[in-house]
Structures are given as structure tokens and as C-alpha cells.
């Protein structure tokens, strides 16, 4: 029982290893941690909704190795990301940048949401006004005559 408990605890403490193989890992834990962070935000182009950290594809492995090589060579994190973006475009970033071509992507939901909210506010205001507001205008003579005629019509 106790052994099972310890086992469960140990399993819970384990962190997901992604697809990184032991032979790719860097000896320096600080660099390796940076490599993992960078890889998690780079899209694998073969299996598009996985990061290169998650993907078992050959290209993902190549890119993981390149990320580590550049870090060892002394590149900053952003320089490493730029290296990959220069070759594959913004599409490799799982977190798209905020720039002219992506304004619609970032601002669109806010704009549409604001419009929706406004529409809801206007709708309920109007309903509230008709429910509790002044009584509707009285019928004109013309309308009264028509109503009387209709009622008579039915009683026949």
C-alpha cells in the first residue's frame, strides 16, 4: 500500500518529457531549460499543431538540435527564434506576433465582442423601456372604427 502511494507520488512529480531524446539534451541544465522553452513555442511544420518539443517528426528533431547548437554558440533566445523564423516564416511561432498582418487576428475578437455586447445592451434597454415605460398612444378615431367593425364582423 505504502509502496503504491509512493509510486503515485513519484509519477505525479514527473514532468512531461516531450519528444526530446536523451542524445539531444545539453549537459548544461540552464541551456537545456532555455532550449525547452524555445522549442515549446516553435511549431513543427510536419504535424502542424504540435510544437517541435512534442513532435517525433524528423524535421522537429533537426530543429531541436539546431536550437541547442545555436544556444551553445552563444545566441540569445530571440536570435535563435529569429533563425528559425527567417527560414520558415511567422507560421512557426505558436504564439503569433502582433504586427500589421495579424491585427485582424488579435483585435478582431475584441471588436466583434464589443459589437455583440453593444447589441445586447441596446436590445435590453429597448425592451425595458416598452415594458415599464409610458402606455402606448391611444387609438385614433380611424383605428377605433376599424376595430369596432372587426368585432361586429365576428359576432355575426
Amino acid at each position: 500500500m505504502r509502496a503504491a502511494f509512493v509510486l503515485v507520488l513519484l509519477l505525479m512529480a514527473a514532468t512531461p518529457a516531450g519528444a526530446v531524446l536523451p542524445d539531444e539534451m545539453l549537459a548544461d541544465p540552464v541551456l537545456e531549460a532555455r532550449a525547452r522553452d524555445i522549442s515549446k513555442n516553435l511549431r513543427c511544420l510536419v504535424c502542424q499543431n504540435q510544437s517541435i518539443d512534442d513532435s517525433d517528426a524528423g524535421l522537429a528533431r533537426d530543429l531541436r538540435v539546431i536550437v541547442r547548437e545555436r544556444l551553445v554558440a552563444g545566441d540569445s533566445d530571440s536570435a535563435v527564434v529569429d533563425f528559425v523564423v527567417d527560414r520558415y516564416g511567422d507560421f512557426v511561432l505558436l504564439n503569433p506576433p502582433f504586427k500589421a498582418t495579424t491585427y485582424v487576428l488579435w483585435i478582431g475578437p475584441v471588436v466583434i465582442g464589443t459589437f455583440g455586447l453593444l447589441a445586447v445592451v441596446v436590445f435590453f434597454r429597448r425592451r425595458h423601456a416598452t415594458a415599464s415605460g409610458e402606455a402606448p398612444a391611444p387609438l385614433s378615431d380611424e383605428e377605433k372604427k376599424r376595430l369596432d367593425a372587426l368585432i361586429e364582423d365576428r359576432s355575426e
Binding site: L45, V46, G58, L59, D62, L63, I66, R87, Y88, G89
Partner: peptide, 10 residues
Amino acid sequence: GRVGIDWGVY
């Protein structure tokens, strides 16, 4: 595949 990566081959 290094040159391929420089060409953006995926």
C-alpha cells in the same frame, strides 16, 4: 538536411 532547413524545406 541542414541545407534543406536553410531553404525552409519541411
